[in-house]
Design a protein around this nucleic acid. Structure first.
Lengths: 142, 142
DNA sequence: TATAATTAAATTGTACACAATCTAATTTAG
DNA sequence: CTAAATTAGATTGTGTACAATTTAATTATA
């Protein structure tokens, strides 16, 4: 068995499916004026309201090189504010604005819309979810 | 159930696992002087020896905006040649060179090295593979 | 307590990734 | 046959993604 054949890789279909599903979000996210990465960032903020860049990066698996410009864009759009912590000025505190909170309502149908054009039964979706989080947890260790 | 919570998404863990596993390849690929996208491109060429940009893009799920600069880099490194087809000059024929063929041997241990640091049992790997290709086939339809 | 080590973001540079547009070659249809 | 439509790549512009480095603030230690 040739382990350098594309069909024998596990990473390649992961890479493809990840990209293609993100692409399915694009038309819906365009309507509300954000990108996929900005969308998952807003998800954290819809949940937590306030967080610093480091903790946000730990949750999203992104570093400051990605987050700094992205957060500046979300600030420009008025969805968040960026301010140094008074307790520890190394920390940049990201806070959701009213406009950012309202954005959640505009996004409420997106997961359903994307799910519709994906055609994955309950069982497979559950298995996929379980395996992916198993992997994430083992990748987090090192 | 809040369908706009990060933990309730299927796309997010896909996106994370895809990125993190690609990152596992990086140190090994650095040793042979290519990137992950260049690596999967070479996989197609190790298999097919010659292909045009369109067909390559169909296999890799990448468009000419990504492939054109990437193929120029692989050409600079001496792993491929790029020449217009004489039959139909719209087609750019990508051919693997001797150096490109030799690269395969240098890469032969990479899949094993990456697999080692991933810790996924046979059963889960099989299930994951099956579900991902099920998804790819349904995504290809539209 | 001054200095070293650590930490959090920002910055720099390289490489995708893709939508949209453009150009040139080939096909198709009237 | 010839103009219109299609096709293949290239280009442009925006937005990640990340390694490596830098800067500034804080903490630890000799």
């Amino acid at each position: 068995m040739d382990n350098l054949k594309l069909e024998n890789q596990l990473c390649f279909p992961l890479y493809v499916v990840s990209k293609e599903i993100v692409k399915k979000y694009t038309p819906y996210l365009n309507e509300v004026g954000i990108t996929y990465t900005q969308y998952i960032t807003m998800m954290v903020l819809w949940d937590k309201k306030e967080i610093n860049v480091k903790d946000l990066g730990d949750i999203l698996f992104l570093d400051s090189g990605t987050l700094t410009p992205l957060l500046k864009k979300l600030e420009e759009k008025g969805f968040i504010t960026r301010n140094r912590s008074l307790i520890d000025e190394r920390n940049l505190l990201i806070k959701i604005t009213d406009s950012g909170l309202k954005l959640k309502d505009k996004c409420k149908n997106i997961p359903e819309c994307v799910a519709k054009c994906i055609n994955l039964d309950e069982k497979d979706a559950g298995e996929l979810y379980t395996i992916l989080y198993k992997l994430i947890n083992c990748l987090k260790e090192d």
